[in-house]
Design a protein around this nucleic acid. Structure first.
Lengths: 197, 197
DNA sequence: GCCAGCATGTAAGGAGTTACATGATTAT
DNA sequence: ATAATCATGTAACTCCTTACATGCTGGC
């Protein structure tokens, strides 16, 4: 029983939450008091290396985090607009977050590469389809990389965002390499190469 | 109404299935008659570029595919073992698969990089934790790449598995690049670099 | 006049997981 | 002895998504 105690000692056993919860908590850990709406904007920046959660999920996570005592919130009135609920991380929340960051086992990255999946079954593709697929993929990756470049610019050298900046640099190198490697199989897909029919 | 018709003409409108379904169908499209168990073994090879589905999901997908008429099956008795159900792709199944491969819109790759996620929030990590994280990640990636190398070997130059071979080559280049780029942020994480506390 | 942005939330459902159950055979 | 392999399947659950509902403000 109780296979979720990772370190028995004096620490209370904390529930294991999905990474999405910790991501939301992590944004609050920068210190600001944020609404669900604002959190959603921040979370969009995760899309380059983590998918970004749907709006409705953010609100759900906030309710869960508050129920756990990791987040406190207060309502703020606004003229003409619906009230806004601002969220702040608690001490317990910060501890839980650090527990995740420092102690929790790290899952391997999850990759679902639907282009590679199609290439894998390429013997059934119509002629030219695979080259088309790879070209589109390279173009889309270039666009994403350009977007990431803008984000990187906006971060600048602000020490508060040193680590997001590091991740953005990593991301740029990642996408750049991905564009290069995606061109390689593309080079081996001659027009008549895909088996006809 | 009916926003699922992608090409109205004479083609019947087919339900949109998740990629996992098409992956299962795709393995059957190589022509063999396979049991759920065998399909699971094949599907494990997807793990390098697509996650591989749980065993219970494979059986579920097979039932769905059969209900749609994309797969036919027959039971085979075995001495001492539970009966085995062998599955074969139908003509309708092959057409549906090619429809997916050739016409369906291609979703962007999904990446959930939990190491990058943690690095993003690195300002709250204990000293040394980030370097540890990156080292572990590089080591794990090397192991995965070695496994992929073995799979690549076993494929050889068999023309039936030409496209899986291409994907494996791509994968090796991908992991190799990932190891290189992951070392870069690692180089900027000096021991005292992670903010104390 | 219409759309985008601000702001929150519910409902319904699909995708995918783990854990469990069963049971013979072969290898260590 | 006991574990792994073969072989299938159910139950219960979590994560996450889309679609919808509401309603004011500001810009084109």
């Amino acid at each position: 029983m109780s296979n979720r105690h990772r370190r028995g000692r004096s620490e209370a056993s904390r529930p294991v939450l999905p990474n999405t919860s910790y991501a939301v908590l992590g944004f609050l850990a920068f210190g600001a008091e944020l609404s669900g709406y604002e959190l959603r904007q921040w979370a969009l920046n995760l899309r380059f290396f983590y998918w970004s959660p749907a709006q409705s999920q953010i609100y759900g996570e906030l309710r869960r985090l508050e129920a756990l005592g990791y987040v406190s919130s207060r309502e703020v009135e606004q003229k003409g607009r619906p009230d806004k609920r601002l969220h702040r991380i608690t001490d317990a929340g910060r501890q839980a977050f650090q527990g995740w960051l420092n102690e929790a086992p790290v899952e391997p990255p999850v990759l679902k590469h639907s282009v590679a999946l199609r290439l894998f079954f390429g013997h059934l593709a119509r002629p030219g389809r695979l080259a088309e697929l790879m070209d589109e993929y390279v173009a889309a990756t270039r666009r994403l990389m350009a977007e990431l470049g803008e984000v990187r610019q906006s971060i600048g050298q602000d020490p508060l965002f040193r680590y997001p900046g590091l991740v953005a640099d990593w991301g740029e190198a990642y996408y750049s390499a991905e564009i290069d490697t995606a061109k390689r199989p593309a080079g081996r897909l001659m027009p008549g190469d895909s088996a006809p029919q």
